[in-house]
Simulated assay, not measured.
Amino acid sequence: MDIVNAFLLTAAASPWMLLVMFAVAVIDAVFPPIPSETILVAAAAALAASAAGGVIPLLCLAAAAGAVLGDNLAYGLGRALGTRRFGWMRQPRVVAALDRAQQALTERGAALIIGARYIPAGRVAVNMAAGALRYRWRTFLPVSVVAGVSWAAYGAGIGVLAGSWVAQQPLVASVIGVALAITIGVTVDQLAAVRRRRARARAAEQAAAAAQTRRVELVPEHC
């Protein structure tokens, strides 16, 4: 155990870890299976559980910089592909989804982009959609900076919290930190799913009420 703890501490405090964190955050913004959150939380937890906590701000900076660059790469990729490049993009369901995305970006673009940063697949979809739908890059860039910085602080904060619980045990702190991050992520996903179901149910009720109103208006009045 002591050997593993020493290895984790050495790896987390190494300058190479900062480069790895930056690169992983960039790639994860375009290719979600790369676990940038896991690496960030585990590294921050290992550092917080040791005497090397001073490296955490640099870790946050590397993660935030990589996230911002990656999100803007996804935006650029979406802008290059557009919304009509491939046949499947012109299917009715896809067109309808893009229309909804465009409306959401118009009405609450900043909140949508920042919120999506915390969802691996969601951030790729939203950022690419923003590019494809020609969301203004001058607006997207500062919002992506806020999203990247807040995301990095969130991940490091979870790691620091876990590290403070089990001082001098980087391995245990990393495991606890990752488990805590996963738990929070699953909880947020479930809450978001509940909100989506409720929104769909309200939309269905409104559509049914509107249809009923139209039917009533079409029925001729009898003297």
Rank of each mutant, 00 (worst) to 15 (best):
T83K: 05
G87N: 09
G87D: 08
G87I: 01
W88S: 02
M89N: 07
R90Q: 14
Q91T: 06
P92M: 00
R93G: 10
R93N: 09
V95A: 12
A96T: 12
L98W: 07
L98T: 13
L98D: 14
D99E: 14
R100I: 04
A101V: 08
A101E: 10
A101K: 09
Q102N: 11
Q103I: 11
A104M: 08
L105V: 02
T106C: 08
T106N: 12
T106Y: 13
E107Y: 05
E107S: 11
E107K: 11
G109Y: 04
A111G: 10
L112E: 00
I114N: 07
I119K: 01
P120C: 02
P120L: 00
A121Q: 03
A125K: 03
A125S: 10
N127I: 09
N127Y: 07
N127D: 13
M128S: 15
M128C: 15
A130P: 15
A132H: 13
A132E: 12
R134N: 14
R136P: 14
R138N: 10
F140E: 14
L141D: 11
P142N: 06
V143D: 10
S144I: 01
S144C: 09
V145A: 10
A147I: 06
G148N: 03
S150W: 00
W151P: 10
A152G: 06
A153P: 12
A153V: 14
A153Q: 08
V160H: 11
L161P: 15
L161R: 13
A162T: 12
G163C: 04
